[in-house]
Structures are given as C-alpha cells and as structure tokens.
C-alpha cells in the first residue's frame, strides 16, 4: 500500500543511461578517428588537453563552477536516495463540512481508517487488516490490506466488504469513494482451528 518511486526511477535511470551511452560512444569514435572524419573534431593522435591545466584551474570562476556542480550533483543524489523510502502519503484531516457560516467539521483520516479496520477484522476468515485513506473527503481513495487465513472464502469476504464496509465509509463521508483498492494476503500460519476436526480414531456405536 506504500507508494514507491517507480516512474521517477525509470525516468532518471533512462536519462543517465542515455548520457553514459552517448559519452562512451563519442569517446570510442573519437579514439579511433571516426568522429574527426564525421565532425572534424581533434585528430586522434592529438592530446586530450591542449592548453595549460595549471593556468586553467587557477581562474577563480572554475572553483565556483566546480562547487556549484558538486552541490547540484550531491543534492540530486541525496533526493533520489530519499525518494526510495516507501511512503504512505495518507490524507490529512478531511473537511466534512467547509461552510464557514455553519462551522467546520474536521475528521482525521486515521480515525475513519481505524473504524474500517475494526469492521473488517470482525469478518470471517480475517486475521488482520490495515486501511489507509488518501485524497479528499469528496473524492476519497481507500487502500486496504486484508490478511486472511488459508481457509477463508475470499469471494465472500470481498462481497461483505463491498456491501457493508464500503457503503458505511461512503455514508460517513457523505460522498462516493473515488477509488477502492483491496490487497488480499494469506497468513503464513496454517489454519488449524475452527472448522478443522481431528479424528480420534474411536468409533462410537
């Protein structure tokens, strides 16, 4: 249910990949003279650095440019690493009534999420659940993760959620939900109670 940076990662990996590929190809073409033939660049036996490096690096603007480039690269790298942390991004307090003359009604989305969880935890076959609300009160997104035991009737559970939990939440918000997401997980512990009957081997006449 947590949100990851999939699109961001693909975009930046593609941009860096294209830059690295273009730079590598240009170096290879320059080193064997092909780039000189195509674009009239330096000849392949010439030195890479033709001027005086000491004089170049002694100029004050070079230090400033290196500092700015370093800071930009460092900040971008740090932000990219931070973006990898999965986030819930849950909604802040919902404004159920926002007519100033009548007063405001605020409701923290976590209160509604807890109410949804407690309703779902009482459904048959449910081991635990987690609910998360995003969006606004008029167009709320509900994300649910429901862990069931391995004998649960999943379709019956979905039916119960759709016919009781979702209408109740919608009624509380006084608006239809924009989106409902339900992720079913199965508990790793094999169900050995409830409907399971172990035979004792004794036959009663």
């Amino acid at each position: 249910m947590r949100q990851t940076a999939g699109t961001l990662n693909r975009t930046w990996l593609a941009i860096l990949g294209i830059l690295a590929l273009a730079a590598g190809a240009a170096l290879l073409l320059q080193s064997n003279g092909t780039l000189h033939a195509l674009l009239n660049t330096a000849r392949f036996w010439e030195f890479v650095v033709t001027g005086d490096l000491h004089a170049f690096f002694a100029q004050p603007w070079v230090v400033a440019v290196i500092l700015i480039i370093g800071v930009i690269m460092g900040v971008l790298g740090l932000l990219w690493i931070i973006a990898q942390i999965p986030r819930k991004n849950r909604a802040a307090a919902y404004r159920l009534h926002d007519d100033g003359s009548q007063g405001f009604t605020l409701c923290d989305s976590s209160v509604l999420a807890t109410a949804v969880e407690s309703r779902i935890n009482n459904l048959p076959g449910v081991v635990t659940s987690a609910a998360l609300l995003r969006g606004t009160a008029r167009a709320a997104d509900l994300s649910l993760r429901v862990t069931v035991n391995d004998r649960a009737d999943v379709q019956d559970l979905i039916h119960r959620i759709q016919t009781s939990t979702l209408p109740e939440l919608s009624s509380a918000l006084e608006a239809p939900l924009q989106r409902s997401q339900l992720q079913i997980d199965v508990s790793g512990r094999t169900q050995s109670t409830g409907t399971v009957v172990h035979s004792t081997g004794t036959v009663l006449h």
Partner: peptide, 30 residues
C-alpha cells in the same frame, strides 16, 4: 492519489546505487 496495487518492480536497488554514486561525486567535487 493512490498508485496501483498491482505494479512492476520500482528499480530501487539500481536507483540507490546510482544515487549514492551521484552523491559521492557531488561531495568530492564540493
């Protein structure tokens, strides 16, 4: 808004490696 529950891998590991290299290069230049 919510992103889709059914999704493909987010490429977190190559992104973290690239991010660390970018950060290291930036720190070295600064």
């Amino acid at each position: 808004r919510s992103s889709r529950l059914r999704h493909r891998p987010s490429r977190a590991i190559p992104s973290i490696i690239a991010g660390i290299l970018l950060l290291a290069a930036g720190v070295a230049l600064a």
